[in-house]
Each structure stands twice: as structure tokens, then as C-alpha cells.
Write a protein that binds this DNA or RNA. Structure first.
Lengths: 244, 244
DNA sequence: CGAAGGCTTGATAGACCTCAAACACAGTGG
DNA sequence: CCACTGTGTTTGAGGTCTATCAAGCCTTCG
């Protein structure tokens, strides 16, 4: 069993300062844990919901399906992320949310969150900051998809997920689990599976990174960063994480 | 001269309910108006700022430059938009902000905004909602760039900007000003100028839309929407706008 | 009038996709 | 234990989409 409150508090504390009363208030939140099998829909486009969820374990993604039937992944969500925080003020989902691996999520009623934010200035600020970092990640994905060639897009994703996972203690600098198929990588990078495969080989042959059965091995971080044109500013991490 | 307070209030009221006290408090905000010539930088990547701005007139865009030297536009901002609201909680800019046309912006100190949000629940919610809609737009751009072919991307942009401009009374359903060059359209759609030109001709030849000297004429809204795979849900507009 | 910037068009090259088939691997049932 | 199946990966060939390069044209503006 995962410590849902700890997961949420660690995340918020990772970018915002919370005082004792705020931490305590968070600890008293009622969190309703549910688990999902891999490749399972959590929320669909058009759904209305009265709660938001925190990822506690596993990996989740947001996505939309285009007219041509292509699924475009808009973001990956890892433990600590709050993938549908926006439903707090925009109750209708404008995209889908589904599990990639088996995953457990903690659900929190909007009323409880709103009440908390109203009573605790620091929690309000922390939730704000969380949503704004999400937004910054979307912006960077726009740049990644619109402005960079295929191999660079993949390199960029490997860099981003490395830092994000390291920030929650789920990755080492030189190797980490990224439980995705090449098809799913392609859905995030806007590429066909075949082309993803070829670009992965290219990155491997150049000694930058390998990706096999959901495990990323970083062979040369500096050159990977440069191949992916990766600048971590947009993740707004505190000092000390991923600068090496 | 533009009515800066009216511009801000209209925007927030367009998606959120504000009571009399809140409207009055907004009216008493100190807003510092500055104007910029076309193609002028407003904020650069890495800048720190203590204020946020509202677009009062003209058009502004957010952008990043990739390693290959390509500028990727991440969003267009029109009157009423608050392009750097995120600096309220993330003071370092992770992307650039610049004017496309000559533009006037109203600057508001973060301290004033924060104070306002703290004292007025409704204003806090309105600002939240504003930021979350921005985020939803970024998500849709991810889908547009990653999942749709060139002509559809342009059609989608024409649809989106039509609805957004109509929501602030700056466009008719069948024609509106979109003061961009084909190059700038390309920077938003992740396409070369030449290819933008060819796709525009295609859209024109098919009788969907024309784009000439910054003016969009919608020839067939239904078919344009369908060519751009456009579903306005993500704009979270209130009923009555752009459903026809 | 000349100059500058944006638009348009053609030709060519390269990136990426689709189709198709072979291969690897894990899980299943006999 | 082994064949069988399903999913994911890899490779090849061919075609489409989009970029690049280059030039001519059109408008605006000084």
C-alpha cells in the first residue's frame, strides 16, 4: 500500500514551502485510493468529475484522438503528479486520461481541495505552482513537436522524464524505468512506431542512450541533452536536481 | 486609449462569476499601461519579473527558439489574455514573449494580484480558471502539432482564433483580422513558410477559407471545422459563442 | 522611383510514413 | 517440456509529405 498523503505532501513540498499547519491539514485530507490495470481508461473526454487525483504508483498519460484516428499523448504522469487538477475549476474533461502500467491513484473531492486552498494560503500557492509547471511542460512539448526532428524529440523526452523521475526519487541519473512501448513513445512524439524504432537505433549507435523493454540507460548525458536540445528551466525544479 | 480595467474584468467575467465587491476591487487595481512596436520583445527567456500583464490591444505571442535556430510559437495572445500569469508563482520566464503587431499591455504588480486573490475568493477562482484554459490550449496545440497534417493544422488555428476573438468581440463568424505573416503562421504550426503558402492555397481552392494580408475569410465554417478536426470543448467557452 | 518585405511558384532533396514480413519474447495450454 | 499465441520489436522497400533552395512577383513605403 502506498502512502497517499506522503506522496502528495512530498510533491507539493518539492516546489513550495508548506508550514506545519498546512502539512497537518494535508495529512487530514480524505483520499480515496483506487487501482487500475494497464491500458485502462481513467477519465474520458467529456466526463464531468467532482474529484481530482494524485498518481501514487505506476504511470498514466493524458491523450486525445484525432480525426484520423491517431492517439496523441499530451503528457506522461508519474507518482506525485495531479493529472486532472484542472477539473477543480473546469469540471468537463477536454482530454482523456488512462493508465499505461497498472497504477494506483488517490482521489480527493474538489470541495475538500477548495476548502483547503481557501484556508491555507501556502497550499493554494502550491497547487497553483503545480498547475503552472504542468502548463510549462505542455509548452515545451509544443516546441518539441513543432520545432525538432524525430530523434531530438525522443532524446528530449528521455531527458525530461529522467529529471522528473529523479525529482521524486524514482530514477538514477544513468538509468531508469520508463514503462512504455515504442508505439506509446511514438504517440507522445508524434511519430510512427517504425520511425521511433529507427531513431532509437540511431541514438543507441551514437552512444547517447538505449531503450529496451521499458528501461532507459543514459550512456552520455551531456550529448543526450544536446541532441534533445534540452534545457531544464521549464521544469522549475529546485536547485540540486539534475544539474549534473 | 484602452480601458485596461474593463478589458481585464470583461475577460474574467466571460468565464467566471464576479460579485460587486470583486468587480470593484478589480477596478481599483493599479494598472501600468505600456505600448510596444511590432516584433518587439516584451519578456525574454530567463527574465525575472514582479508583474504580470494583460493584453489590451494588438497581438502578442509566446515562443521559444530551438537549437536549430527555429522559432516555435507556443501561443497567440489577444486582448484580455494574460500571457505571463504564470510569473505570479514561477517568476523566471521559461519562454519569450513578444509583440506581433503594435500592442498595448497593462502591467499589474504580483503583490497586488496576490493580495486581491487572497481577499476575494471569486477573483482567485477566475484567475485559476484563466490559467487552466491556457493550459488546455497548450494541450490542444500539442495534439495539433503532433497528430495532424499541415493543412489541418492551419485550419485548426483559424478555427481556434476565430472563436477566441469572437469571445472578446473582435471577430465576426465569417471574417476576422489575424495580423500574422505566413512565416509567423508557420512558426506556430511547425511548418516552413513555403509549405504554409501551399496549404493556404489548398484551403482556398477547396473553398474553406482564405487568408490574405492578415484577414481570414471563412467560406465554409462546417467544412473548415472538419478539415481542422476542431472541437471547441477545450476552449471552455460559455454557451452561445461559436456553436454555429 | 527604388528598396524591402512578404507572397508565390518550381525543382529537388530529405524526412517520415505505410505496408509488409520476419523476428524476439513472455505467457498459455496441452 | 513444448508448441502456440499475442504483443512488441526490427528490417526492407516504396511512396508521400514537407523542407530547402532559388528565383520572380507583388505590395507597401519612403
Amino acid at each position: 500500500m502506498v502512502d497517499a498523503h506522503g506522496c502528495l505532501i512530498r510533491r507539493l513540498a518539492s516546489h513550495s514551502r508548506l508550514n506545519e499547519a498546512e502539512t497537518q491539514a494535508l495529512r487530514e485530507l480524505q483520499i480515496n485510493v483506487r487501482t487500475f490495470p494497464p491500458d485502462h481508461s481513467i477519465l474520458s473526454e467529456g466526463d464531468r468529475t467532482g474529484e481530482s487525483c494524485v498518481v501514487l504508483s505506476g504511470m498514466v498519460c493524458g491523450s486525445k484522438v484525432t480525426a484520423a484516428g491517431v492517439r496523441q499523448v499530451t503528457n506522461f504522469y508519474i507518482p506525485g503528479d495531479i493529472p486532472d487538477l484542472q477539473t477543480l475549476h473546469l469540471p468537463v474533461m477536454d482530454h482523456g486520461l488512462s493508465s499505461l502500467t497498472s497504477a494506483s491513484l488517490g482521489f480527493i473531492a474538489h470541495t475538500a481541495l477548495q476548502d483547503l486552498a481557501y484556508r491555507h494560503r501556502g497550499i493554494a500557492a502550491a497547487l497553483w505552482r503545480n498547475a503552472l509547471i504542468d502548463s510549462a511542460i505542455f509548452r515545451e512539448w509544443v516546441v518539441n513537436l513543432g520545432g525538432r526532428p524525430a530523434a531530438a524529440r525522443l532524446a528530449h523526452i528521455f531527458c525530461e522524464m529522467n529529471l522528473r523521475l529523479r525529482a521524486v526519487g524514482l530514477a538514477r541519473a544513468d538509468a531508469y524505468d520508463l514503462p512504455l512501448s515504442q508505439t506509446e513513445l511514438g504517440e507522445a512524439a508524434g511519430l510512427s512506431t517504425v520511425h521511433v524504432n529507427r531513431c532509437l537505433r540511431e541514438l543507441r549507435d551514437e552512444g547517447l542512450v538505449t531503450f529496451r523493454r521499458g528501461e532507459v540507460r543514459v550512456l552520455d548525458w551531456e550529448r543526450l541533452k544536446s541532441a534533445g536540445d534540452f534545457d531544464p528551466t521549464y521544469l522549475h525544479l529546485r536547485e540540486g536536481v539534475g544539474q549534473g
